[in-house]
Design a protein around this nucleic acid. Sequence first.
DNA 1: TCGCTCTTTGACATCGGTTCTCACCAGGCC
DNA 2: GGCCTGGTGAGAACCGATGTCAAAGAGCGA
Lengths: 135, 135
Amino acid sequence: MNQQLRMTKQRAAVAGALDATDEFRSAQQLHEQLRDRGDAVGLATVYRTLQALAAGGEVDVLRTDDGEALYRRCARTEHHHHLVCRSCGRAVEIDGPTVESWAASVGASQGFTEIEHTVELWGTCADCRASATAG
Amino acid sequence: MNQQLRMTKQRAAVAGALDATDEFRSAQQLHEQLRDRGDAVGLATVYRTLQALAAGGEVDVLRTDDGEALYRRCARTEHHHHLVCRSCGRAVEIDGPTVESWAASVGASQGFTEIEHTVELWGTCADCRASATAG
DNA sequence: TCGCTCTTTGACATCGGTTCTCACCAGGCC
DNA sequence: GGCCTGGTGAGAACCGATGTCAAAGAGCGA
């Protein structure tokens, strides 16, 4: 967490919850999880903390199809993409060097500048597929 | 528009507004645009119509960073991606054959199934850059 | 053209995620 | 410990999107 922010137990709790999983979680899920665990933190604080972490590049954010924001603490802070399980939220960090160069060249060839790209892969992880088959 | 739906003037107006532009537009923008033009259509109807068009694959949908849905009538119905101007919404349809195969192979190598991918490029188009520089 | 039926419409209520407000609380520093 | 300032949290507000339901109208057969 950033050093110009005061380290409060609420921020530590949110950061800790993120550190403890490799799954993308919504603010509401994290809030509920902290409450269940006894580390009650206000919902507004969860949102503020996630926002601060995201602004500092310490968590990655993505949006579900219906617009909800999901957060995840990634091992690396450099640019990367994700393969996310649409059922449990588990994610794998992936690289796409060919995608990077493709995006840059396509953008430039169309006269666009300041190109950014959104590349996320969604699937069903092996565990979720197994339990779906079993159930 | 789908033939098992009744063709009403409201639906025609929404479809017409989409046909008249190559920019991604939000439901609210379309609603306002129709009202300004005199073709007043209820907001709920705009949403419903866009939903129906999207379900039939007749318009493409994407989400802005803050979760708002944007709609665009694309020339082709086959799978493709977009290079979108983050300022005016103008979009260019693009192909990424290498991205397609990369996505599929990465997904499979991690044991994920039913892989889908989200690939959108964002930039500033030449016109918007020019007016930004001028202003 | 006239009615009938059944979908569609639209004003409004509601929902769900997110952000704002503001009085109170508590780190960090002396 | 005391002060100052940023952080917290309960609830309100906000905003995009969806649900409700009575009234309107498209399509069809007569």
